[in-house]
Design a binder for these strands. Structure first.
Lengths: 147, 147
DNA sequence: CCCTTTGCTTATCATTTGATAACAAAATCG
DNA sequence: CGATTTTGTTATCAAATGATAAGCAAAGGG
């Protein structure tokens, strides 16, 4: 396969993903949280419970800054901290009731937008999309600290 | 197919794409430009010549802020402005010689990083990835201003 | 020829984000 | 036990980004 073309395809693809998600999420964000706070909430929502270090790693944010943003989210009653019995330095972070509600609404909106995008897809198309997501996630866009 | 699981997959996938591209581009950015300036340069690189309004639209940035960032890039000798003969209000923006060099190096680095990510992939894997990119780009992450 | 619109600029201010130093408590290890 | 590492906090400062008001020159339309 032509490496140059392949790489070009990858770059335009990532640009497209950014463009589409930006379009969709900008309608989603409540005006009470900042973009970074939204992405933290999103991460918590799909990965909870998580520790502060995990958020810091995943969002490429320093511990102090992560701690600060989390404190703000806490003050806004959108997430909660729980000490971990086995290691009392750590804390598990989960969405609060309100946080769950907010993120559920956000996801519902995103869902609607995506539905609109795939409304012309057949069942086979959907299965194909499903498999493509698996392939790309596992073979290209996997997360890896070691790289 | 379970809709809930499907959208969960979509959301985590887009998050993964963001994280990976963030990881890769953060190594690329010279310390002389900010993230936003980088993304402007990237846009100019693939779309030049562009007008200030086009950048403003595409980057979802207000005209005044776009103007400011462009002025900084100009002072850093990374891009140049040319008045348009047909409409002297407009200006075409292009990368300067230095800007071209910088972006070529950036793209080369991104290519290397992606290659590293797929270095364990077999030829069949690559073909699968290639097809998955096509599927997702055409059926989900297509660009459409009208949506 | 006025009047409006378009494309862009400058200035200013508030907020968000990034970076760093200094600290503390719990765990781990020799 | 004492030293070190891990996990997280608080405080502070600098820089980047977002938002808004005011202005200006060229283009276009009646």
């Amino acid at each position: 396969m032509d490496k140059k073309a392949f790489f070009h395809k990858l770059v335009t693809f990532t640009a497209a993903v950014h463009q589409v998600t930006h379009e969709i999420t900008k309608e989603v964000k409540s005006n009470t949280i900042t973009p970074i706070q939204y992405s933290i909430l999103e991460y918590i929502a799909v990965s909870q419970p998580v520790t502060l270090s995990q958020i810091s790693d995943c969002q490429h944010m320093s511990m102090p800054n992560t701690s600060r943003e989390l404190k703000k989210l806490n003050e806004k009653k959108l997430c909660e901290k729980f000490v971990v019995a086995e290691d009392r330095r750590k804390q598990y972070i989960r969405l609060s009731k309100e946080g769950e509600i907010m993120m559920n609404e956000a996801f519902k909106h995103i869902e609607a937008r995506f539905l609109q995008r795939i409304k012309d897809a057949s069942d086979e198309d959907l299965e194909e999309i499903n498999q493509s997501l698996d392939v790309l996630h596992s073979k290209v866009f996997y997360s890896s600290k070691s790289l």
